[in-house]
Each structure stands twice: as C-alpha cells, then as structure tokens.
Write a protein that binds this DNA or RNA. Structure first.
Lengths: 340, 340
DNA sequence: ACAGGGTGTGTTAACGCTCACAGTCTTCCC
DNA sequence: GGGAAGACTGTGAGCGTTAACACACCCTGT
C-alpha cells in the first residue's frame, strides 16, 4: 500500500510530469511564450485538460507583483448614480481581464476613503478607482500611496490623480438654457448637498447660464438628493407660484419629491411650473408628468476610468494626470412648457 | 559606495532586523500568537511602525490557502434590489475582515454564472455568494466546485447549497390579503418575468391568498420589472375599470408605470383602483399617490448570507445546507382604499 | 540535583509560480 | 565542415509569508 492518494488540486509540476516536460515549459505554454514547439504545446494542453489543472493566481501574483485586481472605492452603491458607475467599471475591468474588489462606504469622509485605500493596497490591487463625489473624499486622494495607479471619478481637480467625470456645469447650463428658451423670467434651483462636487458644478452651471443671459439669480434651495428633501423644497415653492415658473432640480429623485409636493398643493406641471431634473434614472420617464432631464452616461464614465487606469498601470512609470469629461445629454419630456 | 538604496517596500525580514529578532517572531506578533514576551512585542511593533511595514497578504494567502476574499456573483447591480443586497453583503463581509470581489452579469444564464464562478475560483476566493434570482442562474449553482463554500441569495431550493431569501410568497399574500380586507372582490396581478424565482413566488402567494379566501383568480398580466411594462399593463387595466378595483404589482417600478398609465387614462388611485407594489424603493413614498407596498430588507439578506457563508468557511468540513427566510413587511401608504 | 513541562525564540522548509540563465538541438552560411 | 545564430527546453533560485520543528531557558516538585 502506497501513501493515500491525498486529493489535492494539481499543480504545474503534476502537469509537467504527465506531459513529460519541465514545469517551466508548462508555464511557457500558459503564458503564450513564443518559443514552444507546437507539438509540445498540444501535449501540455492535453495534460492540463486531463488533470483539470487551473493555475494558482495567488502564487503567480506573489512573484509577478501583479494581482490583476483593481480596487474600487465608492459611496453608497445603493444609489443609482454610483451603482451605474461601478457597474460600468466592473464590466470594463472584467473585459480587460481584471478582477474588481469593492469597498462601499456608508459615509464618505477623508478618513473613510483613506482607510479604504489602505485596505485595498494591503490586498495588493494593481490600481484604484475612487468614486469620490464629495470634496472631503476627493481630498483623501492626496494620501494615495505613491506609485499606486489611481483614477478619481467625479473627483474635481484635487490632487495629483487623473479624473474622469461628467460635465456637470454644462449639464446644468443645458437645463437652465432650455427653460430660459421657453421664455421663463428666471429659473429656480434645488441643489444637492453642499459638500458634493456634482452639486457645486450644477449650481455653477445654472448660475452662469442665468447671468450670461442676463437673468436674475434666485436663492438656491438646498436639498440632499433624497425625494423627501425635494418634497420639502417643493412645498416652499408651491407657496410662491406668482414668482416661480421654472425650476431646475439637481437630481431626478428630488424632482419626484417636488412633483409630489406640487400635486398635493394643486400646482400643475408644466402648465404653472416647469421642471427639469438631472440623471435620467429609469423611473423618470414614468413620473407624472414624464420628467424632462439631463442624462449622465454613467457607463461611459466607468469604462473611461478603467481605460485611464489601465494605461497608467501598463506604463509602469509615473504618468501625467489626465482629465476626461463625458458630455451630458438633454432629454426632452413633458415636465416643461412655455412660460405663460 | 555601497549598492544604491533601492527603495522597495520593507518585508518581514527588514522588520526583524530592526527589532533584533527573527522574522518568525515578527510573524507571531502579527498573528497574535500568545507566546511572545510583551517587551519583544512592543519592540517589533515599534519597528513595524518605524519602517511603515505592511504585511504582504498575497504571500500569506499562498501559504495559508486563504485569501480572506469572498466572491459575489450578481445580476445587474444597477437595479435597486441587487444593488442593496450586494451592499449589505459587502458591509457584512468587510466587518468580518473579508474582501469582496464582484462579478456583475448583464444577462444571467447558466453559462454566465458558471463562468463567473470559475473566474472567482481562479482568483482564490474563500467562498462565493450568488445572487441568483433566476431559475437558470440557480441551476448553475449545481456546478459549483466541490468544497467551495457557497450561499445562494434568492436562489430557490436548487442544488446542494444554502439559501437566504425574502419570503416572497408571504409578501405577496400580505399584499393580497390587505386588498381583500378592504373589501375588493378580487385582486389582479402584474407579474415579473417568468424565469424569475421572485416573480414566481409572488404569483404563488397572490394566488394562494385569493383561493384561500375563496376569491376568483384573474389572469396574470406579465411584466418584466420595468416601468414601461407596468405602463403597458396599466393601459390594459384602465380599459377594464368595471371589473378591476385592486391590483397587486410585483414591483414598485412597474407600479410607477401603472400609476402613469392610470393618470393618462383618468383612472383615479385609490378611489377607483387600489394598488400595492413590492420592494419599497426609496421613491415609492413620493409617487402620486404614495405607494402602499411590501418592504424587503435587502440589507438583512446580505448580512445573513455572509453569516451563513462564514460559518461554512470556518467549519472547514462539509456543512449541511441551511435555509434562511427573511420576512417581508407591509408598508401602508395612500394607494389603497376600501372597495366602492 | 534532575526529570518534566511550560514559555519564548530561531532555523528550515514549504506554498506554486516566474525569472534568469544555461544548456541542447537545429539550421544556415561561408 | 566548422561556427554562429536561432529555436526550444531544463535547472535553480527566489517571491514573502506561515508551519513544523528544534532549542534554550526558567520554573516546579521530589
């Protein structure tokens, strides 16, 4: 009786033995090294198949220093925007043969992002994408370990790192100009939370479009992205129907809240007040009325950020910062109309 | 002149040298081994701190055979349900000190899930969570590598693997009974796509509640979860206001479509027709009218699945299948009323 | 004084792979 | 026909960690 068979997964040496070659030749076949005789290659391939061999990527990562894993740090992936972006990132990364390791933060502050980056670095990721929509998160990019390839999504111009983002300013301008073109005296704005770069960009685009066209800039109503905050702002606006005829809401969820508030108060949209949202979530088309909004191509942002990151990883050396801007798109629906 | 300093990250041996101990002692400190003198421990800790040493988890994984990484396979994480579940999974996993590697599938079929599992297995994950809401995906669990700890979320009773899910049947019954209690003759149903286990469960719960109470079971209107499909079904229902007074819609997004269709056709909710949805997405509360619905605790599902998975991983040996059911909750709002 | 059992530490050998180098066997040219 | 260039393959070392063992040391009890 020999030693018990001891079922353990086959390793390269096992394949080598079966194929009658050295482990190194097996490695060469696996890595598509050119100098392997065709006949040898097929013999090795057959042995791999026969044993059901799978190469151990952990051992490989140890020696190559590359794990083919990318880290993603994101804020609350329950929201449509981050979720879509992360989805785009994941698809693009997998197509390029990379694994994706995710850290999703409940609250996003500098310390949280910092920890997440540390955590992923420990795991040995080859690069990191930070979906950093908040100013405080963007700052955390400054303490990225040197030499770690990184890309910020929606990250402002903070730090040394490349940035991919949707042109928020332009999107907001698109919305505002549309309303102005319809003959409205001015456009009110319900903004996102103060710390968010996207919120800031939208305020800026709205304000610029207004002043460029020589219109009055009303006070901003502050929201927090939630439908509820939109609802509250909507209630306030509903009391001012004599002056308010058009409002640009910083995202579709808040716009839903506004719609609800207006419905309760008997304010008709778009007859009395026109509304434009932002994001184009899948629900917007079925709001009552269907929401005119600005579409962000989150998928494109995700894909683009992976492009940039992989280029950085493959360059090996330090790269110069890139800055990519994905254009937003105006989507006309039924929540806007000509001024009375 | 000696050799150039060659800035490479410090390894255990470097720490050992600085602390004046062997690398093994450093390892012991890092792994909280009991037999280390307190004084030695602090010396090592100080050296670690001084050098900024971080242990190489890849090397560790190679020898321990544990990567402390969990794999998650999910269908389209852009949807609220999967996104919330994955979020819950990720939080729970990270709290337990595990990394999470995600594969998000555009289309979920057996081959796709199979590939995803292979992919994650190659990466050396310690266990896999499959968010397998479709029958075809659930089948793919059968070709899970033997010995790989796994949990299915919303996976039916397929295969050998443990399952965590929301009690869809009970949720649908809750919705249906609520409508019946309001005095409606019967309840119509707009279902999810045929292949989905959740859709099936909801149909079943609805049908059972109806027959148990001795009511007629109308034909099912088939939807596909999208607001648009709900809209189409709503249009059809709007033509039948004489017989239809209550409808249970299999998810909130479709309910939104129904609401839109009814608004267009002048059907008043809840005065003429009552509607109950399913999921309780953040928007539902601000639909017009606010939607009565069934809440699924996705976070609980995610956390529970990690519990089960970790127990399986830590047990090392083969475990018996577990089956966990998270109860749904009825959320009363304004889209339902007493029958005329 | 000496066996016995902790406690603390060092030494050596894996883990499964790739890299660098050293071979061997062709082939081709003068 | 000899030598060089190229194609193909094997050998050995090393990646940074943990596991297994060996060893020195201290305490206890007889």
């Amino acid at each position: 009786m020999g030693p018990s068979p001891e079922r353990r997964p086959p390793v390269m040496a096992d394949v080598a033995k079966v194929a009658g070659v050295s482990h190194q030749t097996v490695s060469r076949v696996l890595n598509d090294h050119p100098n392997v005789r065709a006949e040898t290659r097929t013999r090795v391939l057959r042995a791999i198949d026969q044993l059901g061999y799978r190469r151990n990527l952990v051992a490989r990562a140890l020696v190559t220093k590359h794990s083919r894993t990318l880290g993603v740090v994101s804020f609350d992936t329950t929201l449509y925007g981050p979720a879509s972006t992360v989805y785009g990132i994941e698809q693009a990364a997998r197509e390029a043969g990379y694994f994706v390791s995710i850290v999703s933060l409940r609250t996003i502050d500098r310390a949280g992002v910092h920890d997440a980056i540390d955590y992923l670095t420990d795991q040995g990721v080859d690069g990191i994408v930070v979906v950093a929509p908040q100013r405080s998160a963007a700052q955390a990019l400054e303490d990225m370990p040197t030499g770690m390839p990184a890309v910020a999504v929606e990250g402002g111009q903070a730090g040394e790192v490349s940035v991919v983002s949707v042109d928020q300013v332009e999107g907001a301008a698109l919305a505002t100009r549309h309303l102005l073109d319809l003959g409205h005296e001015t456009v009110w704005h319900i903004s996102g939370p103060a710390d968010w770069l996207e919120a800031e960009g939208r305020v800026q685009g709205w304000r610029e479009a207004l002043t460029a066209a020589g219109h009055r800039v009303p006070d901003v109503l502050a929201g927090d992205w939630s439908p509820r905050s939109g609802y509250r702002a909507g209630k306030r606006l509903a009391e001012m129907t004599s002056e308010v005829t058009a409002v640009f809401v910083a995202n579709d969820q808040m716009a839903l809240g506004v719609l609800r508030a207006f419905a309760e108060e008997g304010v008709r949209v778009p007859e009395q007040i026109s509304i434009v949202g932002f994001d184009d979530i899948p629900e917007s088309e079925f709001f009552s009325p269907p929401l005119t909004t600005i579409r962000q191509d989150f998928g494109a942002v995700g894909r683009r950020s992976i492009d940039v990151l992989l280029r950085q990883i493959e360059a090996e050396g330090p790269c110069e910062r890139e800055r990519h801007v994905v254009p937003p798109r105006f989507v006309a629906r039924a929540s806007t109309a000509h001024a009375r």
